[in-house]
């Protein structure tokens, strides 16, 4: 399934946050979105998933809904958004409850999601008993349980420490190796973009416009190989060059505000 964003503009009252964004997320592609703080990345993701109504422009999906997909566009949240009063498995089951499914299928989806994320032994734990990384794994398991066509990830790793981030990046790589789920991945972190994305969209400071879309040629699975490092360093330099000025300016604007 593809996601098409056309001529999208968004304002919060007088504040223009996104300005005439055109973007296509291709089937099976992981598209990272980077940009300075406050440039409208979360807003863009909100509009893409239908939980923020845009001021102008259109968002559409294209292509058939895959078999077994209950919620084509599915989020993974920065703050995990788990219900603290529900156990791990109940949190996953929550998003299946309103779908007419045979009980066995329901159980199978929960179990599969939890096993994939290595959470099966913790299925009865409450969120407060889990580490941050584990909690985000519950968030991912929940997303997988509905077999999404498109994943929208809003800084899914930024609340985690560096080691946990590495571990979860491996989980994502594993996911995309097997599932090829289309994904829009918002991040601040260049390393994440360089490890996970096929293409990287660089947004300008607010109002967010697309400055450039950089393609990473190296296949995801080979990016840790020594041979890939030259190309990655080049892309990194390019991205940093694009971001640095914007970030500095945005920083000053915040200080002035």
């Amino acid at each position: 399934m593809r996601l098409l964003i056309s001529d999208l503009t968004h304002r919060y009252d007088d504040l223009t946050v996104l300005d005439r964004i055109d973007l296509v997320l291709n089937e099976g592609e992981v598209l990272a979105v980077i940009g300075p703080s406050g440039c409208g990345k979360s807003t863009l993701l909100g509009i893409a998933g239908g939980i923020v109504a845009p001021s102008a422009g259109r968002v559409a999906v294209d292509g058939p809904v895959p078999d077994g997909c209950l919620n084509p566009i599915t989020y993974v949240f920065q703050d995990f958004a788990l219900l603290p009063w529900r156990s791990v498995e109940e949190n996953v089951a929550l998003v299946l409850a309103h779908h007419p499914l045979p009980a066995a299928d329901r159980r199978a989806r929960v179990e599969e999601g939890l096993r994939r994320m290595g959470l099966w032994e913790f299925r009865q734990a409450l969120p407060k008993q889990l580490s941050g990384g584990m909690r985000q794994r519950v968030g991912i398991a929940r997303a997988l349980a509905v077999r999404p066509a498109i994943l929208l990830l809003d800084e899914p790793l930024s609340a985690l420490d560096a080691q946990t981030r590495e571990l979860l990046m491996d989980d994502f790589l594993d996911l995309w190796r097997r599932e090829k789920t289309t994904a829009l991945y918002v991040t601040h972190n260049l390393d994440e973009a360089l490890r996970l994305a096929d293409r990287v969209v660089v947004l300008s400071r607010r109002p967010g416009r697309i400055r450039e879309i950089v393609t990473i040629e190296e296949p995801r699975d080979r990016r840790l190989a020594p041979a890939a490092q030259a190309h990655l360093a080049e892309v990194r330099a390019r991205l940093w060059h694009l971001m640095k000025a914007e970030a500095q300016m945005a920083d000053r604007e915040i200080a002035r505000a």
Binding site: G49, I51, N71, I73, T74, Y75, L94, A97, V146
Partner: peptide
């Protein structure tokens, strides 16, 4: 928002 995004 989470619940809405899953269509509850």
């Amino acid at each position: 928002r989470m619940a809405q995004s899953f269509g509850l």
